[in-house]
Amino acid sequence: MAETGTTLVKRGMAEMQKGGVIMDVANVEQAKVAEASGAVAVMALERVPSDIRAAGGVARMSDPAMIEAIMAAVSIPVMAKARIGHIAEARILEAIGVDYIDESEVLTPADDKYHIDKRDYQVPFVCGCRDLGEALRRIAEGASMLRTKGEPGTGNIVEAVRHMEKVNEDIAHVHAADDNQLVTLARDFRVPLDLLRDVHETGKLPVVNFAAGGVATPADAALMMNLGADGIFVGSGIFKSDNPEKFAKAIVTATAHPTDYALIAEASKNLGAPMRGIELSTLTDDQKMSQRGI
């Protein structure tokens, strides 16, 4: 008897993406550029985070017709975003048959209290996290893959670095803790004890954790891989740069060979201007997407 939608096939799908780059694309043409550059998947969304920032207003799930057109155009997996807590958007994306749903703080949250109960969907979910507490809460809700939140649409890597380091420090702390501290740690992290115990025993997360939110250059991708990211999401970075094709290829190369600096140097030559970027201190708290859905 074949069984679909199991924890193993959902988490396993993310394992197969390791060492790869998942690129935000806004149309079929961009999706084809992403595939040709060596992306392991594309994220179909009408506006990349930097445009969402610029446009303001409410950001929602993309047009299903646009997502389906991209699914028809490329053979690599296609992901799409649903608003935090928006069960109907997630079910619509599942009905279309996207390969992964990103319950994403890049879109305007639909529920300021609860995330989606992701356990009984056939399609796996990826969610953002800033620390181990957020990571394990999302896993408890059924997420099969994690990514740092970073600060989307800024082209500024500092928040993604902060979030990756924080998750890793938290894991090291829990791994080194005594058994008798776990109940209290579970309370402090606001996470289920069984998930915390699992991290205590294995010293790692039970799902992969990619870097996202501010990756703008091949060197940024290599930096995140060296900090322990399993792979990279690039949002605004590629198609807001001067030469998207070259840029996309260079980021894929840097992610696959994160310590081969001569190779990354070669790939980084004459890429033209990357996206302009935003200094984080100029953003107010309510302009920070990473504060959503904790």
């Binding site: 074949a2 679909t4 199991t6 096939v9 959902k10 053979s75 996207v98 390969d99 056939q122 399609v123």
Partner: peptide, 15 residues
């Protein structure tokens, strides 16, 4: 046949 069994939601376990 690449992706011969379909997309992710058709991914499965079987004996």
């Amino acid at each position: 046949q690449r992706n011969g069994f379909g997309r992710q939601k058709e991914s499965f376990e079987a004996d």
